[in-house]
């Protein structure tokens, strides 16, 4: 669990979401629908994004679970978290933990994803506030920050905020050549 061993005995009918929130007090993971449709409860199970409401806690036995609480390391926000803040990707914040975990799963699998891959990875997380545009931009920025060394400086400062005055759609330049790398 976020890199630590947790030992517990749970009833078979307990979901992973109930276990995280109720037993481990990891309440950063949210319940939005209970039927896997909204993505608010997305966590990584063995590195892959899943909706914790549709996983039994016992199914995670022996596995690795990553939640939003494990995203920042030693009090330092990840590039992904910083990008969400700077891009204005957060409003009410209820979908944010699930969004970040979906993005984390994507970037682990594909460090430099195409726009289509970003949309595909994030479309299972509903957001009613932002209209998604800034969220997709944040994932793009985080991927680039990771792919290009030292780009972290750019998102850490406040000056990355030009996003507020952009007139049109988000159009980050794509590095050509990837996309064939998967599978």
């Amino acid at each position: 669990m976020n890199g630590r061993l947790e030992t517990a005995t749970v009833p078979a009918g307990m979901t992973l979401l109930e276990f995280l929130r109720g037993r481990l007090c990891l309440v950063g993971t949210k319940e939005g629908c209970g039927i896997g449709e909204c993505g608010a409860c997305t966590v990584l199970l063995d590195g892959k994004p899943v909706t914790a409401c549709l996983v039994l806690a016992v199914e995670a036995d022996g596995g690795a679970v990553d939640t939003i609480e494990g995203e920042a390391r030693d009090g330092e926000l990840s590039a992904l978290q910083k990008a969400f803040i700077e891009a204005g990707a957060i409003q009410c914040g209820f979908c944010t933990p699930g969004m970040i975990m979906s993005a984390r799963g994507l970037l682990r699998r594909i460090p430099n994803p195409t726009d289509d891959e970003i949309v595909e990875a994030m479309a299972g997380n509903l957001c009613r506030c932002t209209g998604y545009e800034a969220i997709l931009e944040a994932v793009r920025v985080a991927a680039q920050a990771k792919a290009v060394p030292h780009a972290g400086q750019m998102v850490a400062g406040q000056s990355a905020g030009g996003s507020g005055s952009q007139g049109g759609r988000l159009s980050s330049p794509r590095v050509p050549g990837e996309g064939g790398g998967r599978g």
Partner: peptide, 18 residues
């Protein structure tokens, strides 16, 4: 100015309490 949200840190870390 395009000042980011102050609560955003709590929201990206799961610390924000609902």
């Amino acid at each position: 100015q395009p000042v980011p949200r102050e609560d955003a840190v709590d929201k990206v870390t799961g610390a924000a309490r609902y």
